[in-house]
Design a protein around this nucleic acid. Structure first.
Lengths: 259, 259
DNA sequence: CGGCGGCTTGACTGGTATCAAGTACCGTGG
DNA sequence: CCACGGTACTTGATACCAGTCAAGCCGCCG
């Protein structure tokens, strides 16, 4: 019942300034949005440049694979997935992103987004033109530090994923995935043991390199073993420590998605 | 016969300044080493700070997993692998790096290298303290641009790897790997069709998430199909287009390791 | 010469994909 | 309100790819 949709409703009912303060707390690029070291004029400039808190419905695109890279996005509420279409025409999900996490950095190399980003539910994001990030990061060492750290987390996350895909079996992958979600929810002040998945079994399978049926079977098996309780997308982690062991002990830390 | 060891010998025989010029041409962080926009004093500073062209023998470590992150490294000749030791104590190779490629960026998040880097053959690298990269990137937009692009390539490379691991079978993985190497060698002015592997079958298997035996079998099969000729580590690509098709068409571009 | 590590090949096994069927759920429209 | 269709999910049966075990070859080095 810690679903983010509750959050969205709350958000809509609030004056936007208040919502900003609430959600930007702990945001990676907070200095960009609330630069207390900058003068009034600059702040006003920012306000006009940033697209703070644009709302997307489930299935709507934040950016498309192939589009020119010009901005990064901070998730303020909700969640999204990024995926690439392979030459074979299949979808490959590369990551999921939740509130406070930053997406879009992959465009850094080719200046074109190598993936598309789609909202998994009603989701709000802040669009931040990359030129501004660059420019401001020259002035604000704190922000620069955050940017590097965020990039590092994204790299870590991918490396962790490579490890998962090349060394772990189906059960270990699913356990890793659940522990990772649990960890990320906890960091955001939600329950670590009880949450609602915002993605389908099929999307989990795609992400983890498993068939839908396999994901489903593992969920069932975990349930029989009293590791979790799963009713549709509602998940309860009954035995976190045992699940952590199953995951190969690599579910912790800041892995998967930049915070 | 385009082996890098020839290169090393050549290098040693040359006056070091000349060697620098030759190898730094096309180097990602060239502006850091030859900053023509900076005054003489600064250049002298750089000379004292940078560790240009340190040589490592096969098996020697450039940096260790867990060490404090303080520098990035540009490979000048030879090659190296980076790997993490998992909680289960297994080795997971995360990438290979060749001349002109940059490694060490993964430490950006935790300020600690999440992997170890080991020379696969006689290898020279330039050690560049990250504080210098940061500092100079503030002054040199060109360098900053390069840095971002390099980071982006590393992200691309990992994403590509995730795709390979979660969607491709053994043959596609090996084909992808060979095409990728071919592409990278070509970019460096070596033959795209004929080269010597600097890593063992076992290391290829580890990297691709396959057993050694599987790698060996795929090499044999490719040979029977006249796709390649493989004599130990000496590889000749006989039918690049067919191999590219086998790889799932995703072997191209700047994927795998930052240039 | 013998030993050892890297590589190859064969036989067998097992985990996961695939195919197939059935159920539950949800939004839509009557 | 219910009927309907579609999607998401589950579960079972079967097939196959790749891992594991085992044996042998080759080249290198002590």
């Amino acid at each position: 019942m810690k679903s983010n949709s509750d959050k969205n409703i709350e958000l809509k009912a609030m004056p936007s300034s208040q919502a900003n303060v609430m959600l930007c707390k702990g945001c990676t690029l907070d200095p960009l949005c609330h630069p207390n070291t900058l003068d009034k004029k600059t702040v006003d400039d920012l306000d006009s440049v940033f697209n703070r808190g644009v709302m997307y419905s489930k299935g709507e695109y934040i950016y498309h694979q192939g589009e020119t890279f010009d901005a990064v996005y901070v998730v303020r509420s909700g969640s999204l997935k990024t995926y690439a279409i392979t030459s074979g025409g299949e979808e490959q999900i590369t990551n999921f992103y939740f509130a406070t996490e930053l997406t879009g950095l992959n465009g850094l190399n080719t200046k074109v987004y190598p993936v598309s980003a789609v909202a998994l539910e009603t989701t709000t994001v802040c669009k931040i033109p990359f030129s501004n990030v660059e420019e401001l990061s020259l002035k604000l060492p704190e922000l620069r530090e955050n940017l590097y750290s965020t990039i590092g987390k994204e790299l870590d996350s991918f490396q962790e994923m490579i490890l998962t895909l090349s060394k772990k079996n189906a059960e270990e992958r699913v356990a890793t995935f659940l522990m990772n979600l649990s960890c990320r929810y906890k960091k955001r002040g939600f329950s670590a043991s009880s949450f609602r998945l915002t993605m389908s079994r099929s999307e989990i399978g795609n992400f983890l390199g498993l068939a839908v049926e396999t994901v489903s079977r593992v969920f069932s098996k975990f349930q029989k073993q009293s590791l979790i309780k799963a009713e549709g997308r509602e998940i309860e982690i009954l035995d976190p420590s045992r699940l952590a062991v199953m995951s190969g002990g690599m579910a912790s830390e800041g892995a998967h998605a930049a915070q």
